[in-house]
Nucleic acid binder design. Structure first.
Lengths: 116, 116
DNA sequence: TTATTAGTTAGCCGTCTGGCTAACTGTTGT
DNA sequence: ACAACAGTTAGCCAGACGGCTAACTAATAA
């Protein structure tokens, strides 16, 4: 599933930092690497993972590879989360309605008891 | 970081299914296990991971453990995603404005050239 | 043309995942 | 008292992850 890889890619702080950086525009591998105290090959692994999740795309021209954010992948996650939220909010609404009904019945029962 | 664990927890289809199930209300471990062709201990591991990410809470009464969704954890993820979205949308806006300015300058230059 | 730069490939390491079985604990129904 | 039920613990396994170094390729600058 696509979601597996996107969530998986975002489960690492280094990769989230890369995504955040790319929100501000394209960057080369070197630029992306600068903020991290990490050997290049390690960082490249992260980039590969981001690419295979669909969150990042890259193209090499000459000897430099430029990376860019693929926002559709992020949107996929947002959609999934929104769907879950909708479901549990609907459930909470039903619950609330149920409680309201209970309260009303409580009152009317109280009145009946008094008037009896 | 909390986000590491939440994203990590959601990177598995089984665990996402559990989360979806819990959107519809509490459930015991046994109920959660039913839809899956998986040994109980395997499923329990998933539940542990969901718990340590903060997505799920559980309490044991008697011999049955009830699990419930902790929606704040899901909200954390939504907040993070929304923040990223805001950043790159602002950037796209700036880009668009820039392109608009270019177009206008283009036009005025064209007029100047004609009138010369 | 030679050095420098930018990235890549290969391979090593310890840890975490995601599944399993087998055996155990504690609770509840008969 | 005992059987059945609901979960738990322990331990095994293969494979992925996140880091490293060393050595390599290809493009560009001097």
């Amino acid at each position: 599933m696509q979601l597996d890889n996107v969530f998986g890619a975002l489960s690492d702080a280094t990769r989230r930092a890369i995504v955040m950086r790319l929100c501000d525009g394209e960057a080369s591998v070197g630029e992306l690497a600068k903020p991290f105290e990490m050997a290049l090959p390690s960082l490249m692994k992260h980039i590969r993972i981001l690419e295979s999740s669909g969150l990042v795309a890259s193209e090499k021209t000459g000897r430099v590879r430029m990376c860019s954010l693929q926002t559709e992948a992020l949107a996929t996650v947002e959609v999934w989360l929104a769907a879950q939220r909708e479901i549990w909010e609907q459930r909470l609404d039903r619950l609330e309605m149920y409680v309201e009904r209970l309260k009303k019945r409580e009152k009317s029962n109280a009145r009946k008891r008094k008037s009896k």
